[in-house]
Amino acid sequence: MKKCNRTSWGKALKTIQLAIALIAISLTASAQNGNAGIEQANSQVRSYFESGCNLMYAIGAIVGLIGAVKVYQKWNSGDQDTSKVAAAWFGSCIFLVVVATIIKSFFGI
């Protein structure tokens, strides 16, 4: 085996320090690009909120129409559980509208 002298240890130490410095510089550059990416993702997600809330209103309208037809059919057939179906239908419509409104107010859109 070859003995290591002081100059070879000094060169190895300088190489390790250089490698650590390069890694630190690359991580700093990556973090800056990462922050820009996070900001871009934030702005894109916020731009989808309005469309998402409108989609929730549309789903609520469809669920409301389907529920209204179910309640009407049960009412005309004389079923005993008409009030339970009507309450479930009304509750689901209210839930979708409230969730969409809360999302808009919570995120300041």
Rank of each mutant, 00 (worst) to 15 (best):
I103K: 08
A68F: 06
V69E: 05
V63P: 01
F107T: 10
V85F: 00
I109L: 12
A87W: 03
F106C: 03
M1T: 15
I38N: 12
S51C: 07
L65H: 09
G10N: 13
A41H: 06
K11D: 09
E39C: 08
N54E: 07
I94P: 01
N33V: 01
K70R: 12
I38R: 09
S92Q: 12
A29S: 01
V97T: 11
A24G: 14
E39V: 04
F49P: 02
K84L: 00
F106H: 05
S77Q: 06
A12K: 08
T15R: 08
A12Q: 11
T7F: 15
K14G: 12
L13N: 06
Q44V: 14
R6L: 11
A12C: 11
I16Y: 07
N35R: 07
K104T: 12
G78M: 01
N76P: 00
N35P: 03
I59P: 01
L55D: 15
V99C: 07
A100D: 10
L13C: 10
I94F: 06
A61W: 11
C93E: 14
L13R: 13
V71S: 02
G64Q: 12
V69Q: 06
V97E: 03
Q80P: 02
N42L: 12
S105K: 09
V85G: 00
L27G: 04
V71D: 02
A24E: 14
A36I: 05
A88F: 06
A36C: 00
G52T: 02
A68V: 02
K104F: 08
C53I: 15
Y57R: 11
Q17K: 12
A36H: 04
V45P: 01
V63R: 05
I38G: 07
I25E: 08
N76R: 11
S43W: 09
W89T: 14
A87K: 05
K104N: 15
V97N: 04
C53A: 15
I16C: 09
K14W: 08
A36K: 03
I109K: 09
G52L: 05
T7G: 13
Q73P: 04
D79P: 00
E39I: 06
S30N: 02
T15Q: 13
I94C: 05
G10W: 13
S8W: 07
L65G: 14
G64C: 07
I23R: 01
T101N: 13
S105H: 06
V45M: 08
